[in-house]
Design a protein around this nucleic acid. Structure first.
Length: 538
RNA sequence: GCGGGUAUGGCGUAAAGGUAGCGCGCGUCCUUCCCAAGGAUGAAGUUGGAGUUCGAUUCUCCAUACCCGCACCA
């Protein structure tokens, strides 16, 4: 249970993170100057780097560091038949009905059929003349169990008309229409008997038209997940990849869902990016691979700076699982706004391949050379949200701390993003201690030129050195490199090296290396910078 | 989709039916030998639309976005 105070603290933290994201250029509202667009967000200069680092690392872990996964990059627009076969056209849209009395919403297909006596009303009359509306025609109906008096239906109807908000109870006169026996009807709310609205379809897929003519034959959809491209192309990949089971296909790309209600900053957006792996395995081995991938993915989150202790593994109960799933884990993160899903790892059986084989008429079997038999592989799918993970990185990295100035004793607030170095948008900031000393500036520029081909670095000479360090902190840059007079004139006696040893007194071309998290400084030879930094950020 | 709230430079805020101010940040210049130092100077704002009014950023209505709760999330 979250206390109201903690909820306030969390909301305040989230607001600070949103403000920081805008201030430093991580995330902006989409089309902001036109008032934005509900559920759409842009990544600014730093956010783009962060997101790219995340995707690159996933890609590297999937396709480079193991040899049983190949990459794919499917189109966003696909033949509409794909979405029919996958089940999205039929099941990704939910006909919803709404209780006219309580406004509560139900899936139309989940309403339990009711029997009883239905009372129909045409509307209400209001005898008092001082009210502007003498009567209101607004049909309504109530279902009550057989044998119950009409009075109980009247009571519900009265509540409904009162809820419309323009009348006082004592002067409402119901205009009764008729009563009727009803069997197995889904037109009434099982909880209170009130009439339900006509079903409205909420299709979560964005519909669009391919080509110039907008007729039904040209309809397709923006993909609601990247997965289907990989199932549909299974045969093609099998042909060229020369892989034996088990093997996987990995893809990163945009997907679109017309969410009813986007929420929580970028967490639920209508346009978002996925990192999905479809891992094909021998029939019967799905469950064990589900476990393996769960462990694999947990370790991965640790590697990008999200500790195991902040990830909750939810074993999705049978009732909540998608119809195709034979087992699902949700990996959830403790966001300030609640514990929410980052990644779903699902054992999809052979549902997708069998659906597409059936619908397309093209066999999608795998021929097992050892067993000398054909079969449809099972699939285990770790599917991660890029934008959600970026948000988790930001939330996890965000820290405000009080620092005391040793000399003056003055206390100040320091805002710092403690990204894991491999995720940090910029790896190092390079500064001349003073910008009005040409020798320092020239050397700093030289160091920048050395490091630039190796990693993203920044150069800054504006303001005091302390100010520049704090700027690095807010951007989450793990290293600050300062070219100072010791660089030119030789190191002082007793300098500690970042490599652990000593810098020799009088040694030139050494710089101050400042660490973001500890704010500690040490010296390092310029020649050692590339090796040291590459090791620290890869 | 329902209910509630909010909307003032990049960020955080103040004020008022009649000239919109402050702090931080940002740009330029000066100064500065290691944790948001100092000085000079500059740019930048009332979410959008309609109405009331001599005059609206302020009042009213509508729209949009964001936040909170409910519902939803194959």
């Amino acid at each position: 249970m979250i206390s109201p105070l903690m909820a306030d603290v969390s909301a305040a933290k989230m607001e600070k993170i949103v403000a920081l994201c805008k201030r430093r250029g991580f995330i902006f509202q989409s089309s902001e100057i036109y008032g934005g667009l509900n559920g759409a967000w842009d990544y600014g200069p730093l956010g783009t780097e962060l997101k790219r680092n995340l995707k690159d690392y996933w890609w590297k872990c999937m396709t480079q560091l193991r040899d049983d996964v190949v990459g794919y990059d499917g189109s966003i627009l696909m033949n509409a038949a794909v979405w029919k076969a996958s089940g999205h056209v039929d099941t990704f849209s939910d006909p919803m009905v709404e209780c006219l009395l309580t406004k509560k919403r139900f899936r139309a297909d989940q309403i339990e059929p009711q029997s009883g006596t239905a009372y129909y009303y045409k509307g209400i009359k209001v005898p008092t003349e001082r009210l502007p509306l003498g009567r209101a025609e607004k049909p309504f109906a109530v279902l009550v169990p057989k044998g119950k008096p009409q009075a109980s239906a009247d009571k519900t109807a009265r509540q409904y008309y009162l809820g419309l908000g323009f009348l006082e109870s004592e002067i409402i006169e119901l205009e009764f229409d008729r009563q009727e026996a009803v069997e197995n009807s889904t037109a009434f709310n099982p909880e209170n008997g009130a009439q339900l609205s006509e079903p409205k379809v909420f299709n979560l897929m964005f519909k669009t038209y391919v080509g110039a003519t907008e007729d039904d034959s040209s309809i397709t959809y923006l993909r609601p997940e990247t997965a289907q491209a990989m199932f549909v192309a299974f045969k093609n990949v099998l042909e060229v990849a020369r892989k034996k089971l088990p093997f996987g296909i990995a893809q990163i790309g945009k997907a679109f869902r017309n969410e009813i209600n986007p929420r929580n900053f970028t967490f639920r957006s209508r346009e978002f990016e996925q990192m999905e792996l479809e891992f094909f395995v021998k029939p019967g081995t799905g469950p064990e691979w589900l476990e393996k991938w769960k462990e694999e993915r947990l370790a991965w989150y640790e590697a990008i700076g999200i500790p195991r202790s902040k990830i909750h593994v939810l074993t999705v109960p049978d009732a909540d699982r998608a119809f195709y799933s034979q087992g699902t884990y949700d990996l959830e993160y403790e966001f300030p706004f609640g514990i929410q899903e980052l990644e779903g790892i699902a054992h999809r059986g052979n549902y997708d391949l069998s659906q597409h084989a059936k619908a397309s008429g093209k066999p999608l079997d795998y021929f097992d050379e050892e067993a000398k038999q054909k079969y449809l592989p099972e699939v285990v799918e770790p599917s991660a949200g890029v934008d959600r993970t970026v948000l988790a990185l930001l939330c996890e990295a965000f820290a405000e701390e009080t620092v005391r100035d040793e000399e003056s004793g003055k206390e100040e607030m320091r805002t710092v993003l403690r990204f894991a170095p491999r995720m940090a948008p910029i790896k190092a900031g390079i500064f001349p201690l003073l910008k009005n000393k040409p020798e320092l500036v020239a050397k700093a520029r030289a160091v920048q030129a050395t490091l630039r081909p190796l990693m993203k670095v920044s150069y800054d000479e504006a303001g005091s050195i302390g100010k520049r360090y704090r700027r690095l902190d807010e951007e989450g840059t793990p290293f600050g490199i300062t070219i100072d007079f010791e660089t030119l004139e030789g190191a002082k006696e007793g300098s500690t090296s970042a490599q652990g040893g000593r810098i020799e007194a009088g040694q030139v071309d050494t710089v101050t290396l400042r660490h973001r998290d500890s704010m500690k400084q040490e010296r390092i030879a310029i020649a050692d910078l590339p090796g040291y930094l590459l090791a620290a950020v890869s």
